[in-house]
């Protein structure tokens, strides 16, 4: 379980590129021994697909529908589409909603300031391990320089590491939000080579960097763009996080941090 405390300049971050092979799903990588039974299941599935769909059409007492039907009620009610808060309102509502469910929101002017805050929290919590997404923004926090005694790893910065284990042992995970919705108090994070899903999930504390221009009013503003992005350009994981992990399964009593992080910070940057 060797951990690395690499200076951030050691390797350039892997920048996602839709043209490159990083979007190849893993199923194309199976060796031939596995392929046999999977192929067999695949053939069965394709044969069954037609009878399955025909049966549905039969039950609905009409022929199969092959063309996209008109969908007049697509998405939220029309009045909702024009609902927008100004920036001050968005910040106020996002903060209120995220805080109400047990999360923390802080406003920072710069990534520099965010870095200082995270370093201070790490010292307070006596953090030993930190894992961060491998991105220019998390690099600009300069945590490696601020916390020389903490083992800080940048996700997937080299291939031989057991990255899930790195995230599982981490005290703090640091991610960059791809967007946020004030109305529900939600941040959105996506997966890629440099942005592991585990970083926002396995550590005890999760810190989300949210550039202020990415804060929207409605959840729909985060969802609808995926419709036009093209299926093949969607990341494998799109995660919407609205606060700390919680459960009320035992006598309705709220418990925080059941499987995911119990402490969540969103740092509004800008």
């Amino acid at each position: 379980m060797s951990n690395t405390n690499q200076p951030f300049s050691a390797k350039p971050p892997v920048v996602p590129n839709p043209e490159s092979s990083h979007l190849t799903p893993d199923h194309e990588q199976h060796d031939s021994s596995q392929a046999d039974w999977l192929d067999e299941l695949e053939q069965k599935s394709k044969a069954k697909q037609q009878t399955f769909m025909n049966h549905i059409a039969d039950r609905l007492q009409r022929p199969r529908i092959q063309e996209a039907p008109k969908h007049p009620f697509r998405g939220a009610p029309e009045i909702w589409q024009d609902f927008n808060w100004n920036e001050a309102e968005k910040i106020e509502k996002f903060t209120k909603h995220f805080t109400e469910v047990g999360g923390n929101v802080l406003r920072m002017q710069t990534l520099e300031e965010a870095g200082a805050f995270i370093a201070e929290q790490s010292r307070l919590l006596n953090a030993q391990y930190i894992v961060r997404q491998q991105l220019p923004e998390t690099e600009a926090l300069t945590l490696e320089a601020r916390l020389p005694h903490v083992q800080i790893s940048a996700w997937n910065s080299h291939t031989e590491e057991a990255w899930k284990a790195r995230a599982a042992e981490a005290d703090i995970g640091i991610v960059l939000a791809d967007g946020a919705a004030a109305y529900t108090g939600t941040v959105m994070v996506t997966s890629s080579a440099s942005q592991g899903r585990s970083v926002s999930l396995l550590p005890t504390v999760c810190i989300v960097l949210l550039p202020i221009e990415r804060l929207q009013t409605r959840l729909g503003e985060l969802l609808i763009p995926w419709d036009s992005k093209g299926r093949e350009n969607l990341p494998a994981g799109i995660h919407f996080i609205s606060g700390p992990s919680r459960s009320s399964d035992i006598e309705n009593e709220l418990t925080i941090g059941v499987h995911g992080p119990g402490i969540v910070y969103t740092l509004l940057i800008g």
Partner: peptide, 16 residues
């Protein structure tokens, strides 16, 4: 607290 949209298995270059 979580809503996740999963689109296919991990990409080749993903580490989880």
């Amino acid at each position: 607290m979580y809503m996740s949209g999963i689109t296919g298995p991990k990409r080749t270059v993903d580490a989880d």
